[in-house]
Computed example of a mutant assay.
Amino acid sequence: MNECTVSSHVLNAVEGRPAAGVRLTLLREGEDGGYEAIHSAVTDADGRVSGWGTVPGRHRLRFDTGAWFAARGASTFYPEVEIAFTAAEGHSHVPLLLSPFAYSTYRGS
């Protein structure tokens, strides 16, 4: 099976800056339909996690937003954000725009 990569970028939409220190976990769907964690990291100073290697197919990116807001003395309605997507051959970029009471995502490049 061909390889692909997945990356992400988290932006703090309240301050208009990168969200450094957000824990992300990449999960991949198995043959039984369940998901297994295959990578985990924390966003760097620019709010980024660089390309993780995986295989094409269904994945989920889980963002630990509750811990990130709590570390800043804030609360959030969303203790975690999980985005389901299908990774294709090549590269998939999954950005997250984050605030305490809303989030948005799109297919990045």
Rank of each mutant, 00 (worst) to 15 (best):
R72Y: 05
F77H: 09
G30I: 08
E31V: 10
G73R: 07
A71K: 12
L24F: 08
F63M: 05
Y103D: 00
E82G: 11
S7A: 14
V94E: 15
T43S: 01
V10Q: 00
L98H: 06
E82Y: 10
V42T: 10
A87N: 06
A84M: 11
F77P: 01
P79R: 09
E3S: 09
E15G: 13
S92I: 05
S40D: 08
T105A: 01
G90W: 01
G66V: 06
T105C: 04
L61F: 00
A67E: 09
E31M: 12
R62S: 15
G47W: 02
G16P: 11
T65F: 04
R17K: 15
V42D: 08
A74V: 06
Y103Q: 00
S92T: 15
R60W: 10
P95V: 05
F77S: 14
P79G: 10
V6L: 05
A45R: 02
A41K: 02
G108Q: 12
S8M: 05
L26T: 06
R17F: 09
Y35R: 09
E89C: 06
A20Y: 02
S40M: 07
S40C: 05
G30Q: 14
G66Q: 07
A84R: 09
A88G: 13
R62C: 13
F69E: 03
V22G: 03
L11A: 12
L26V: 08
Y35G: 04
T5K: 11
A45E: 04
R72T: 03
H9I: 13
R23F: 11
P100V: 01
A74Q: 15
F63C: 03
R23V: 11
A88T: 13
T76L: 07
E31F: 10
G47N: 02
S104C: 07
A84L: 14
R62T: 14
T43F: 00
L24Y: 06
L61G: 06
R28E: 15
Y35I: 08
R62L: 15
S99I: 12
A71H: 04
D46R: 14
V42K: 03
L26K: 10
T43D: 01
G51W: 05
F85G: 10
A45G: 03
G21Q: 01
D64H: 04
A37R: 10
F85L: 11
H9S: 14
G16E: 12
Y106F: 04
T86D: 13
E36A: 15
E80W: 12
A71Q: 12
A37V: 07
R72S: 01
T105M: 00
A70M: 08
F69M: 02
R60H: 12
W52S: 00
L11K: 15
A102G: 02
I83Y: 11
A41M: 01
S99D: 14
S7P: 04
P100E: 01
V81M: 09
D32N: 14
P95G: 13
H91S: 14
S92D: 11
E80D: 13
T5A: 06
P95M: 06
G16L: 13
L96G: 08
S7V: 05
F63E: 03
S8K: 06
R17T: 14
S109I: 09
F101N: 12
H93E: 12
R23N: 13
Y106V: 02
